[in-house]
Design a protein around this nucleic acid. Structure first.
Lengths: 376, 376
DNA sequence: TTGTAGGCGTTATCAT
DNA sequence: ATGATAACGCCTACAA
């Protein structure tokens, strides 16, 4: 196509990249390009520039709305830098995650954000060794020299426990995820610590463990209800909470009158449920956004020192844990109508400002992905 | 590193790809590779092979569980061929989608699956012109020479209407998505046709339109309830249906006793709701799987004629539309306990068999993404 | 301003 | 079986 324009290949390249060129050359190149339908080859460009314009995200379960929220936030940042997001779901398996991390050496992406629910030395080794930047969302050993955005789910659990106790609940059940996961362990510790802080002994019959899925939550809650008699249920995430809600309603318990219910992650699911679920926000969108920003900064400058950021949890109180009005009639209406969403957790994420990809693709505006204009 | 091994660069390449080589050479190369920590560069390989090993998927809303299901199915197939999936969310915007399709000329992926809710001539032009294979999930003009997997949501709507009428419902409300979308238009037409088929006149007050989201469904249902008096509600997807459920319960209507509820897409959400929602399965997982298979076949052989596949809808009947037992007491228990999930829509998707990527990456097993071992 | 030439890291072809 | 060499498509000194 350079030939077609009657100019050198170099001139053509320059024109296409908007670098110099006489008016005449520019015209000829443009014409020839249009004529031939020339489009630059992304691969060749990557080989030359040593960048792919891709950023990867590895999460355990793409169906969990908490990761959807995180993904959206990440994608917004990534897209605003002219890059694209590649999503992996690992099923929470260590082998799958470490394989992914090692594959980074192939340089098929410019960076990776990973949110493991189990963290092993293999993870850390792979990350430290990796030639491409990695940011971890989640708890990490204190001395790990790795960019990291975390929250404190122990405190989050405490918020929920305090709230339930303040509302007069006495027997708080706890439906957790696997204890051999980082969040599972943290939430277990948080739950016990929170009770201890109020001088309340832990009743093991009020604690149940499954995985972080809906079905497990439903089943675990069913077991718990069968053997204990909680007046509140705290669940380690919203999927579990929705499962627990199903179990409660199936058993004929009223929520929140008989049993108050609180989830964690404060996802869309919490607001979709009926009654709407109180939920501990762990700032997943914020963590995602910050992680993406950290990653882009590191891509721009690999020599930055390792950074560690914290996002504070907060509690969104909704109908599922608000004491019912003592209305005696009308047994049909399941829940008191409270002004939903007191919104301690509603934040407007400001438009992020991050280092853009050095050579933004010329020509038409890059299509966003994952989030842009989400509402049809 | 070839130098380090004391062999030519070509020999090294051969050994690394497992092609021939004397025992001695192999040993030397392996040793040197380990020593230097050599990892093949994915970009350079792509430049040479003219393949990236990436397949893209473009959907409107990554938070809609129907796309999550589709994505999982696609990802399983894609991963089994040694490729990776790149997910884009377009927000259902035509501009965003066509931009994506045009970008295919950059060859940053080996193929794309797109599931547009609005299809324009621009889409078709871009697809036909595209140098990389594209498969469309969704309705398409009959003469479009494009690989295509579709379902018949008109028939799907009819299944639901027949079911509700058979259950003795008289006034079926319909909460639809935008009429200027392909699925919105099809479902509207299907609803009217189904009623007509039973000789029932259409009452426009029983039809409400929003978008395909939860909030819109809730609001639209609220409006509909305020002005009409349905004994059943059919919703254009499960997100809308869950929104409608929220509206119904908020208004104090019992489901299904006062109002039966049926969604569409038969997503996880339908089973998470309480009561569980009947839902029209449009075979999203199957469509996804077939689309991925078609795409891989076409990547393997670009000269295939355009293919068109159909996936039949079916109805999953659950508690939300099953006539309540005439129990007169106990007004608290919201729903009859029916053996949930008669599962006309439960299918075991057999492990797909598809053309694998010609040169599978040597070395460690490729990590799957998006779906593998989803349950932690 | 323009053209020539080298290289990004691989694989493939062709002699040897 | 091995080694030199030419692509793959692009960018970028460097020279003209």
């Amino acid at each position: 196509m350079a030939a077609r324009a009657g100019v050198s290949i170099a001139s053509a390249s320059r024109v296409l990249n908007g670098i110099g060129g006489s008016a005449e050359t520019v015209r000829k190149v443009r014409a020839a390009a249009a004529e031939v339908g020339y489009v630059p080859n992304a691969i060749a460009r990557s080989l030359q520039s040593q960048r792919t314009g891709l950023v990867a995200l590895a999460v355990a379960d793409i169906g969990n709305p908490v990761y959807v929220a995180m993904m959206r936030a990440i994608e917004a940042v990534v897209a605003s830098s002219g890059r694209q997001l590649l999503v992996h779901a690992t099923g929470g398996e260590v082998a799958s995650e470490t394989a992914l991390l090692r594959r980074l050496a192939n340089r098929y992406v410019d960076g990776m954000i990973v949110s493991p629910i189990r963290i092993t030395d293999e993870h850390l080794d792979a990350i430290v060794v990796s030639p491409v930047p990695v940011v971890v969302v989640g708890q990490l050993p204190d001395d790990a020299p790795v960019d990291n955005v975390r929250t404190d789910s122990r405190t989050g659990v405490a918020l929920a426990v305090d709230h339930l106790l303040a509302a007069g609940r006495q027997r708080i059940g706890f439906v957790n995820g696997p204890l051999d996961t980082v969040p599972g362990a943290a939430r277990d510790a948080g739950f016990r610590a929170a009770l201890a802080g109020h001088g309340i002994p832990v009743d093991e019959r009020l604690i149940e463990v499954g995985d972080f899925q809906y079905a497990a939550g439903r089943d675990a809650a069913t077991r718990l209800l069968a053997r204990a008699d909680p007046d509140a249920l705290l669940c380690a995430n919203d999927l579990i909470a929705v499962g627990a809600l199903h179990a409660l309603l199936t058993e004929g318990r009223r929520v929140p009158q008989d049993v108050a219910l609180v989830g964690m992650d404060d996802t869309e699911l919490a607001q979709m449920a009926f009654p709407q679920l109180s939920s501990v926000s762990l700032g997943s969108a914020t963590r995602g956004r910050r992680a993406a920003e950290l990653l882009l900064e590191r891509i721009a400058d690999p020599d930055l020192p390792p950074r560690r950021e914290h996002v504070a949890p907060s509690l969104a109180v909704r109908a599922s844990s608000i004491p019912a009005v003592p209305a005696s009639g009308v047994p049909a209406a399941p829940a008191s109508s409270v002004p939903a969403d007191p919104a301690p957790s509603v934040r407007a994420d400001p438009a992020p400002s991050v280092p853009a990809v050095p050579a933004p693709a010329p020509g038409s505006r890059a299509p966003r992905s994952l989030t842009e204009g989400r509402r049809a």
